[in-house]
Simulated scan of single mutants.
Amino acid sequence: MVAQKKTADHTVVNGINVVDLFALIDGVRREPAKGKTNWHVTTTWQGQARSRAQVESFEIGGERVSRRFSIDIDEPNELGGSNSFANPQEHLIAALNACMTVGYVAQCAVRGITLESLAIETGGEIDLRGFLGIDPAVPPGYENLSYTVRIKGSGTKEQFAEIHEAVMATSPNFYNMSRPVALKPALVVE
């Protein structure tokens, strides 16, 4: 069980420093510009169906913060890949689950609820006739995703239901996946 830890200068619940979290919330409430973030990823082809996504930095409140991460992506053998890494759909679902996980952990932390366990299982169906261009009437992506949240901790069923609603209302990736996001494509041929 992850417990609350109190020290002289901060309280940590579920690994989240709630004093820092409340300070962030208060700072953004007072100065909305501090809450503006900008995310950027560059993906390059690595041969066959493999690609590598590079993260160099992000911006928060107009300040650039360096972050260096590499995410390797592939396809299963059956879809032309070498099955070396998770595919784009698995990364998409993992990103949704991870974003919601942060939401549940933080929502519990600010309420003083300690978590014992949290798991999110998500799945959906893609008909390859759309992706392969065989039938233009078939969507090339998910028409719906289903997910189940399994959560256990010191909260009541009512508190967890409230947290569940709060996560759906505030999770960036829940928002991104549940509504159309305008894409602004540009093509540069070199």
Rank of each mutant, 00 (worst) to 15 (best):
Q4S: 12
K5F: 14
T7P: 06
H10Y: 10
H10A: 13
T11P: 03
V12R: 02
V18A: 02
F22P: 14
L24H: 15
P32H: 02
P32L: 00
G35A: 09
G35L: 04
H40N: 07
H40E: 12
T43F: 05
T44P: 06
W45T: 09
W45A: 06
Q48A: 14
A49E: 10
A49Q: 15
Q54P: 01
F58L: 10
E59N: 11
I60S: 14
G61R: 01
G61C: 05
E63F: 12
E63K: 14
R64C: 10
V65Q: 08
S66F: 06
S66D: 15
S70M: 05
S70R: 11
D74P: 02
E75V: 02
N77D: 13
G81Y: 08
G81F: 04
N87C: 05
P88E: 00
P88D: 00
L92I: 07
I93S: 02
I93N: 00
L96Y: 11
M100G: 02
V102I: 12
Y104P: 01
V105I: 15
A106E: 14
C108Q: 08
A109K: 05
L115K: 02
E116M: 07
S117T: 11
G123P: 03
I126C: 09
D127A: 06
D127P: 05
R129A: 15
R129D: 15
F131P: 04
G133A: 04
D135R: 00
A137L: 10
P139D: 10
G141C: 05
Y142R: 06
Y142A: 04
E143A: 07
E143G: 08
E143I: 10
S146K: 12
S146M: 08
T148S: 14
T148F: 00
S154R: 04
K157A: 12
E162S: 09
A166W: 01
T170E: 01
N173Y: 07
N173H: 06
F174V: 00
N176R: 03
R179L: 08
R179V: 05
L183Y: 12
P185W: 01
V189E: 14
